[in-house]
């Protein structure tokens, strides 16, 4: 009787595991994979073609072309954003922790859409609060515009009573080590879906 219950338990667990794996496959590679809503058909061009110049949070001038050679996870935001951006940075920190050593070579790029307030120092204050792999990028307003256009990211300033906020694309873009666009992770996508997507570009 006990043995039978044990076997049933094992079968149940195995079934649960299979269902979880199937659900994961369905949503990552299978017919349930969400078509990324990209404003550029087929996704952004290879990183090697990026010609804009940005400044990282340590003050170094660089270009997204320099990310080629390592896989890249890229997203846009701004540091005066109290809800969505800390949530995204926190999610990314969780994904990187789940991947551990597997993700040690990945570039994690956070590009501001608010260069007016987000100086390199402001980006440094902010990214320091999250995973050490996250690098913040800012730049001249026209360079930020060129960067967003290159990746097909949207942003728009919205005036408010207390200043302004930025509406922006919260999608995470994934590139392989060769710098080719591979996939996206939607805002607030579950870790069980996000982590396998990142693993595919490593």
């Amino acid at each position: 009787m006990i043995r039978r219950r044990f076997l049933l338990g094992v079968a149940g667990l195995a079934g649960l595991l299979a269902a979880t794996l199937f659900a994961g496959w369905w949503q990552v590679d299978g017919p349930g994979a969400r078509t990324p809503r990209l404003s550029i058909a087929g996704g952004p061009p290879p990183l090697a073609q990026a010609e804009m110049t940005l400044t990282d949070h340590e003050g170094r001038r660089t270009s997204p072309a320099s990310w080629v050679g390592r896989p890249t996870l890229l997203f846009f935001g701004f540091t005066y954003c109290p809800d969505v951006c800390p949530t995204t940075l926190s999610d990314i920190t969780g994904w990187l922790e789940a991947l551990g050593g597997e993700a040690r070579d990945i570039n994690v790029a956070f590009v501001t859409v608010d260069p007016e307030r987000d100086t390199a120092e402001a980006m440094a204050d902010y990214v320091d609060m999250f995973h050490p792999a996250i690098v913040g990028y800012t730049g001249a307003p026209d360079e930020i515009r060129k960067t967003a256009d290159f990746f097909g990211a949207f942003y728009k300033k919205v005036e408010t009573e207390s200043g302004y906020m930025m509406n922006h694309t919260a999608t995470v873009f994934l590139f392989d080590a060769a710098g080719n666009f591979r996939s996206t992770i939607d805002y607030h996508e579950a870790r069980e879906i996000a982590v396998p997507k990142i693993r595919k570009v490593l």
Binding site: R37, C81, V84, H168, T169
Partner: peptide, 14 residues
């Protein structure tokens, strides 16, 4: 009280 909306991958707050 603010609300975040997501439309076509773009988030906005109002």
């Amino acid at each position: 009280i603010h609300k975040v909306k997501t439309k076509d991958g773009v988030v906005s707050m109002s």
